[in-house]
Amino acid sequence: MRIPVSALIGMILTAGFVLAAIFADIIAPYPLDAILGGVWEAPSAKHWFGTDSIGRDILSRLIYGGQITIFVALAASLLAFSIGSFFGFLAAVQGGWTDQILSRVCDLMMAIPSLIVALVMLSVLPLNLTVLILVMGVLDSTRVFRLARAVAMDIAVMEYVEAAKLRGERQGWVIFREILPNALSPLVAEFGLRFIFAVLFISTLSFLGLGVQPPLADWGGMVKENKDGLTYGKAAAMVPAFAIALLAISVNLVADWVLSRTSSLKGGRGG
């Protein structure tokens, strides 16, 4: 098995982001919310990316912000996959009314742009990380539902699933032991893509002021705090924006490679 160069670059960068997020306390040169200098100072040996709108170190905030951004996106994607694939498999295995009801509810949720639903829900509910993750996870689960249902439909008609049903197995065994292991590769590839969307989504929400709340930092929020600087030719807002783009691209490179390896849903065992 050879790993293409693009995927390798993607893996190294993704690993870099994740490690920086995990060890933020050790790596970050300054505390999250210490005011250390003037407003929008240019990059220097002391502050590598300069300072922000109230004089905090941008590099430190970028590292801590990455922690929050990646954690929220990861948690939301995991939640989306748990909900989406469970109901997707259930719809495929049960068929009939179960499938109809689940699929139509899903259609209903997808009919309204998810950003609007998220804004409405977040303006009503108390703003904290748990609520944020729940809202994002539930909204994203509709996309996962569709994929999981389509993949499981193909698997549910295989004779080994029929054999399990005729043995008298319960639905849980059919879903988790017969279907899930065979549906895993396309779902894992999709997970990479959904994670990127979650990063973009949380950044969008924070930019609009309904995401992560101060004093916590996240990349979308950092763009918002520093966007006025663009008018004065200060590049502070560009740094977190660039981080978002870089993370999205690097995860995408890995996801693309996984997807190309698993494009055949019925492919062999593949380790």
Partner: peptide
């Protein structure tokens, strides 16, 4: 609607062993 005994006592073998076996078991 069948009992476990009914299901156990009638077994089936398929034409294509490939699709009758879960590739990940």
């Amino acid at each position: 609607g069948r009992t476990r005994q009914d299901l156990r006592e009638i077994q089936m073998i398929y034409q294509m062993a490939d699709t009758a076996m879960n590739p990940r078991q």
